[in-house]
């Protein structure tokens, strides 16, 4: 297969950036999208050019490193899949494919397709945890947790922190990401003591990082490779409201 890539090139954070067209030749349908980029980069390098920078690591859909907006869609055309799990058989031979970085004010571009998503780390640092030091834990089975609650908690905990939700949202809202962590820990008994604190602290940090607000377009849910649903956002809003009210009445 052969393609034309209309690809975003940007030297560094200060550069303006622009689309450049590059051919992708002799691609096979079994190649992943990132393997196709590897082939293109090898050609670019051999021709004396600067290879296209993009984030990736596990290449099996779980580390959350890979990103890319492909033909306008974060993580490309397939539902429930990351860019590294997107295979070239999903594209038409001869097609022109547009490839851009995730775009959001809170995710500045560092080079080409690489963005800075450290805002997510700072949100977790603000409260996305259970405060338990090593060695303080009681025996694991002293606290039974219903199978359904555990499964639901897993569904939210499955978030890979890739940021596609932010990239898909016209307001660049991070609420799906934040809601997923609040819901994961809020569903478990271990998460209860800090539930209010967590919601307040994570939301405050989210706002400080300049993510936008949710206006119920559900684009985030549609692109999430891990099928995190907007119910997580509703849960976050509830927890935040309850925590804010409690704080208000506590004086």
């Amino acid at each position: 297969m052969n393609f034309i890539l209309r690809i975003w090139r940007q030297k560094n954070a200060a550069d303006e950036g622009r689309f450049i067209e590059v051919p992708a030749r002799d691609i096979t349908p079994e190649m992943s999208f990132l393997e196709m980029l590897d082939v293109v980069n090898d050609e670019v390098t051999k021709a004396g050019g600067d290879p296209v920078a993009f984030d990736h690591d596990c290449r099996e859909g779980v580390c959350g490193a890979c990103s890319l907006v492909i033909n306008g869609e974060p993580h490309g055309p397939n539902a429930k899949a990351t860019t590294c799990q997107t295979y070239m058989r999903s594209f038409r031979d001869g097609e022109t494919i547009t490839v851009e970085p995730f775009r959001a004010r809170a995710f500045p571009v560092l080079k080409d397709l690489v963005t800075d998503r450290s805002a997510f780390d700072r949100i977790i640092q603000a409260g996305g945890f259970v405060s338990v030091n090593t060695g303080q834990a009681p025996d694991a089975n002293t606290l039974p947790i219903g199978k359904d609650a555990a499964e639901k908690a897993f569904d939210s905990a499955a978030c890979i922190g890739c940021g596609a939700c932010v990239a898909a949202c016209k307001n660049s809202s991070a609420m799906l990401f934040v809601g997923a962590k609040i819901t994961h820990l809020g569903l478990l008994p271990q998460g209860q003591p800090e539930r209010d604190r967590r919601a307040l602290a994570m939301v405050a940090q989210m706002d400080a990082e300049k993510f936008g607000n949710c206006t119920n377009q559900y684009e985030c849910q549609a692109v999430c490779p891990k099928e995190i649903t907007v119910a997580n956002i509703a849960q976050m809003n509830r927890d935040y409201l309850v925590a804010s009210l409690k704080k208000l009445f506590a004086g």
Binding site: V130, V132, G135, A137, N141, P144, G146, K147
Partner: peptide
């Protein structure tokens, strides 16, 4: 054995049986 205790306390959603145990 301590590892499992620690991870459960952190909120790691391990698989469980219907009775709620790991």
């Amino acid at each position: 054995v301590n590892i499992i205790d620690q991870c459960v306390a952190q909120g790691v959603p391990f698989g469980r049986e219907y009775g709620g145990l790991l």
